[in-house]
Design a binder for these strands. Structure first.
Length: 512
DNA sequence: TTCCGACAGTGGGGTCGCAAT
DNA sequence: ATTGCGACCCCACTATCGGAA
C-alpha cells in the first residue's frame, strides 16, 4: 500500500465531523491493507508510530525539503526507513538522522510530508486516534466493537490485536486474556469538585488517599517481577525497591495496581518533582535509589494466583489485595455507605491533606476494573486554589484555535510595582472566551510581530491551579501547576491582582 | 577534557466541543 | 442529559549529542 493512500484517508477523516463516517473511512482502508501492511497501517491511522521514540522531532522536521511530484513510497518502505533511523546512535547521529529524514521527505509528496510531520510529532489532528481506529478495525473485520476494545486493553496494544484479527478473524479475540507478565492499560479517574459530589454520585464507596507519585502496575510470576508505567513502559530496572517489595509478598503470581512515591525521613511525601526525577533516572540507579528511595503503595489487585479479578466488584478485588499486601504497603482508605456518612469522607480528606498528600480518589464499591477507560466509578477530589493574575502576553493557537490568541502568559504583582511571570495556560476557555480575549488582547497589544503577542498588563483573569512548584524558568522561582482560566475580571484593576508575596505565603512548603 | 545549550521523550495533568447514546 | 474521545497545550525532569570553553 502506498503512503499517499494513507495521507489521503487521513485528510478525509480530518475533514469529516461525523464519527461514524470517520470509522467507515478507516474500516475501508484496513480492509484494503495486505497482511504485511497491517502492522504499519493500523498504528499510523491511529496517529502512533510503531517504533515509539526514534529521536526525530519538530526541529528536524521543520527543515524544508522539496517534495516529490509523484507518490512512490510504500508504507512498508517508510516503516523500514524509520526503523533504520531510530537505530542510529553515537557521534554524528544527529546529522545522520537529519540526513535520513531529509531523504524520506524528499521522496514524499506534499500530502505525504504533511502526514509524516503529524505522525512524527504526535499531532495528526484528524479527530481520530486509538479509540476510533479500534471501531474501524471492528467494522473492517466484523468483530463486536466491545470485544475488540477489551482485547486491546488486555493486550496493551492495538497493533497485536489488529494483526491477529485480520489474520484469523473474530475468533482470534479469545486469545487475549489477562496474563501475568503482559501489562494492561490502567483504569483512570474522572474529577469531581467535592467529596459531597463524588459520594453523592457513587453511593457506597471507598475514599482513598491520592498520592502524588508515578502510577505503576506490578506483575510477579514466581521469581520474575516486571514494573510498568501508565503508558505500559517497562521501568523495572529503575525501581529495585519495587521488585524487592513484590518478591517479599506471600503470593507467587499476581498483578497489582498502585503508585510509587518517595517519603522523607519523617514519612511525609516528597514533592512530585523529586519522585518523578528519581523514577526518570536510568544511568545511575544505585545512587538515585540511595538519595531518593521510593516505596510502592498499592490500591487494587487485577489478578491473584491465576484468577482474573477484573470483572469483580472493587470491594472483592480489595479484599484480595488486603489478603496479599500488608497494610503499610496499601493506600490509606475509609469506606462510607453513602451521602449519610459524608462527614466521615470529608474528615478523611482533611486528614489526608494534613499528611501532605494531593487529595482523595472516591471509588464505587460495586464497579469492575475498567481497563483503559476513564471509568465513571473513580472520582478524584483535590483542593483547588485560585488567584487573580494579569495577562502579560498571549500566543497564537493552532488547529481549531488557529487565528485565536490562546495560550496566556500569567503574571503576579511584584513588590516593585511590576509583574513576574508565573507560567502559561490555554485551559478553561470556551470558544466565546477565545473570541473575546483575542479581540481584547489585540487592543492591548504592544507587539504583534511574532507568535507571542505582548500586551499592556491591564487585563485581570481569575486562575484556578492545583499547587505551586519550583521553577528554574520563571523569575519568581516558582510556577503554577495545572493552571486554568475560570473567568475574566474586568471589574478588577491590575493593581488589585495577587502578589508573588501572598502566593508564596499561601504555599509555605515550596521554597523558591 | 569538561561544560552547557538544544532537542527529544517521559512523567504528571484540566476543560472544552462534538457525536453518539 | 450524559458519556467518550480528541484537541488544546502546560510544567519539570533526564538523557543525549555536539559545539564552546
Amino acid at each position: 500500500m502506498l503512503l499517499s493512500r494513507l495521507a489521503r484517508v487521513s485528510q478525509e477523516v480530518a475533514a469529516t465531523s461525523a464519527r461514524s463516517r470517520k470509522i467507515a473511512l478507516l474500516a475501508e482502508l484496513f480492509r484494503e491493507a495486505e497482511p504485511a501492511d497491517v502492522p504499519v497501517v493500523i498504528p499510523y491511522l491511529a496517529g502512533r508510530l510503531p517504533q515509539g521514540r526514534i529521536g526525530v522531532g519538530w526541529k528536524v522536521l521543520s527543515r524544508p525539503v522539496a517534495p516529490a511530484a509523484e507518490p512512490s513510497l510504500t508504507v512498508r518502505e517508510v516503516d523500514a526507513r524509520l526503523t533504520e533511523l531510530g537505530g542510529v546512535s553515537g557521534p554524528g547521529s544527529q546529522a545522520e538522522r537529519a540526513r535520513l529524514v531529509g531523504e524520506l521527505l524528499g521522496a514524499s509528496t506534499e500530502d505525504e510530508q504533511r502526514f509524516l510531520f503529524g505522525l512524527l510529532t504526535g499531532e495528526v489532528r484528524q479527530g481520530a486516534l486509538e479509540a476510533v481506529a479500534v471501531e474501524g478495525l471492528a467494522q473492517a473485520t466484523g468483530a463486536p466493537p466491545d470485544a475488540v476494545r477489551r482485547a486491546v486493553m488486555l493486550a496493551g496494544s492495538l497493533q497485536s490485536v489488529a494483526e491477529a484479527l485480520l489474520a484469523d478473524g473474530p475468533g482470534a479475540l479469545e486469545r487475549f486474556r489477562l496474563t501475568v507478565g503482559r501489562p494492561v492499560l490502567p483504569m483512570l479517574a474522572h474529577s469531581a469538585s467535592s467529596v459531597a459530589e463524588a459520594v453523592g454520585k457513587l453511593g457506597a464507596c471507598a475514599v482513598e488517599e491520592k498520592l502524588d507519585g508515578i502510577r505503576v502496575q506490578v506483575h510477579r510470576d514466581g521469581g520474575t517481577v516486571r514494573v510498568h508505567t501508565r503508558t505500559l513502559d517497562d521501568i523495572t530496572d529503575r525501581l529495585p525497591e519495587v521488585t524487592a517489595a513484590a518478591l517479599d509478598l506471600r503470593g507467587e503470581r499476581f498483578i497489582l495496581d498502585g503508585e510509587v512515591i518517595s517519603f522523607d525521613g519523617e514519612g511525609r511525601p516528597r514533592s512530585f518533582q523529586e519522585t518523578a526525577g528519581r523514577v526518570g533516572s536510568r544511568t545511575d540507579v544505585v545512587t538515585a535509589a540511595r538519595e531518593v528511595p521510593v516505596s510502592p503503595v498499592f490500591f487494587d489487585a487485577l489478578s491473584v494466583d491465576g484468577r482474573d479479578l477484573l470483572d469483580l466488584p472493587f470491594a472483592e478485588r480489595h479484599a484480595e489485595l488486603a489478603r496479599l499486601v500488608p497494610e503499610p504497603m496499601r493506600v490509606r482508605r475509609t469506606v462510607v455507605s453513602g451521602p449519610r456518612e459524608e462527614d466521615a469522607a470529608e474528615e478523611f480528606l482533611a486528614r489526608t491533606l494534613e499528611r501532605g498528600h494531593e487529595g482523595v480518589v472516591v471509588k464505587g464499591l460495586d464497579a469492575p476494573y475498567s481497563a483503559g477507560r476513564r471509568g465513571a466509578s473513580w472520582l478524584k477530589v483535590k483542593p483547588v486554589h485560585t488567584l487573580d493574575l494579569v495577562v502579560l502576553a498571549a500566543e497564537w493557537g493552532h488547529g481549531r484555535r488557529t487565528g485565536k490568541l490562546s495560550n496566556l502568559h500569567l503574571g503576579a504583582r511584584t513588590a516593585d510595582g511590576g509583574f513576574a511571570m508565573l507560567g502559561k495556560t490555554f485551559k478553561g476557555m470556551t470558544d466565546a472566551m477565545l473570541a473575546w480575549q483575542t479581540k481584547r488582547l489585540r487592543e492591548l497589544a504592544v507587539d504583534e510581530s511574532g507568535y507571542v503577542v505582548t500586551v499592556r498588563p491591564e487585563l485581570v483573569v481569575e486562575i484556578a491551579y492545583d499547587g505551586l512548584q519550583r521553577s528554574t524558568r520563571y523569575p519568581a522561582g516558582v510556577t503554577l501547576r495545572f493552571a486554568r482560566v475560570l473567568r475574566y475580571r474586568e471589574d478588577k484593576r491590575p493593581e488589585e491582582a495577587d502578589t508573588v508575596e501572598t502566593l508564596l505565603a499561601a504555599h509555605p512548603e515550596v521554597r523558591p
